[in-house]
Simulated scan of single mutants.
Amino acid sequence: MSRFEDLEVWKRSARLSASIYKGLFDLRDFGFRDQITRSSLSVPSNIAEGHERGSSKEAAQFFNYAKGSAGELRTQIYIGMDIGYIDRETGRAWLGEAEEISKMLHGLIRSIK
């Protein structure tokens, strides 16, 4: 695969990030909104950076960062649901997608090590 844009995990994580940005656009708690959008944006960004690196070791390192950000994102979604910032249906959808992205990243990391 020559382009990170061809990776399904990158496509899905970029779509999830865009969905979170759109879904929380009107949220007035700027600190929470900033934190959750940053973690969502970090997932596809680290996938892209890892893919563009010169070695498998560096790629795996950045894919691990992306996986960590996906875990951070899931935590923030749970909290957002608990405090009423994210409705349950949307939150469950985001959680499911973030979990699938984590699994895909795990497989990707294992395949290059």
Rank of each mutant, 00 (worst) to 15 (best):
L73F: 13
I36V: 15
W94G: 01
A66V: 02
M1P: 03
D34C: 03
S42D: 02
D29C: 08
E72K: 12
I109V: 01
S17M: 07
D34M: 06
R15Y: 02
I47L: 01
N46S: 10
S2T: 03
L24H: 14
E100L: 12
A66D: 00
V43L: 11
D29K: 05
I77L: 14
S45P: 00
K11Y: 07
F30R: 15
K57C: 09
L95M: 06
S39I: 05
G68A: 13
L24W: 14
I101M: 04
S56H: 13
I112K: 15
S19Y: 07
S55L: 11
E8N: 07
E72D: 12
E89C: 01
G54Q: 06
A98E: 10
A66L: 05
A98C: 03
R33G: 06
A18G: 03
I79K: 02
E5H: 02
W10F: 13
N64P: 00
D26E: 12
M1V: 08
G96Q: 13
S2K: 14
F32S: 04
N46I: 07
E8V: 02
G31Q: 14
G68E: 12
K67E: 13
I109D: 06
Q35E: 10
N64K: 15
S45A: 14
H106A: 06
S111T: 02
V9D: 02
R110M: 09
D29R: 06
K11L: 11
I86W: 11
S45E: 01
V43S: 12
V9H: 05
A70K: 14
R33V: 05
N64V: 04
R3W: 02
K22Q: 10
G107T: 00
I112E: 10
R28F: 07
E100T: 11
K57P: 09
K57I: 13
S17F: 05
S19V: 00
K22R: 14
T75N: 15
A93T: 10
I36T: 13
M1H: 14
Y65V: 09
S102H: 03
S13Y: 07
G68R: 00
